[in-house]
Amino acid sequence: MSSRALLTEKIAFFCLLLCTLIIVIPVILITAVIVKNGIAGLSWEFLTQSPRLGMRAGGIFPAIVGTVYLVLGTMLFALPVGILAAVYLTEYAKDNWLTRVIDIAIVNLAGVPSVVYGLFGLGLFVVFLKFGASIIAGSLTLAIMSLPVIITASREALNTVPQSFREVSLALGATRWQTIRHVVLPNSISGIVTGTILALSRAAGETAPILFTVAAFYLPRLPQSLFDQCMALPYHLYVLSTQVPNIKPHIQYGTALVLVLMIMIMNIVAIVIRSHFRKKKLW
């Protein structure tokens, strides 16, 4: 290799490495800043008590509970619809205009800004269906936002199941549904679960979709039914950061830290599930 080529190689390598590092730097910085400023705010009281003194003291318990409820509600609505739609699209749908329209719809749904979902949820669930600002309205809004990701991830997982498995099952006299139920789903469930958890963890951190549909500015008691409003971590964080003067930063950063930790735990669960199934090496 000529020395010139060698030099080019080195420069190229350096540029590639630099760009890769640029991705890592913000992640480290964000984490470091939040942990450094927030760790002082973390305490048992912070996690288990309601906010007091105009949110300048006390804890964030109602917001944690609210976010958990919203994630569960989102899962309840989005999971069955998303998985069944993905099964239909991969296993049953023929390549015709209807399927193509659905494909385009899914891609576009994924591209809609989250604040538009919020307004849509306000119009449809809160006002038109008269749910009011409530957990059910917020969950449904987040569910619609999560659907394209869940559907896409599930379709990818279903597509990794070798076609020969389906053929064998059919050749053994199984119906299409039996094939899906006993062959396709068991062999793709890890990918589906992983994709779903990642979609839900994104939903957990969203502010705009819950802004008009469920989130309460300040609600020190816990929600009693699906039709109650609730507090939620992302919106609470927004409130603490913009609406509450003279607040101690460790409360803001503590809230951010809790939110990040919750999402991180969900992502770790997804990664563990995936690596667990990968170790079992299905085929």
Partner: peptide, 18 residues
Amino acid sequence: VSFRKKVGMVFQRPNPFP
């Protein structure tokens, strides 16, 4: 379904289920 049961198929690559 009952027809495919009567006529079975063995594929090129062995493809046992996992």
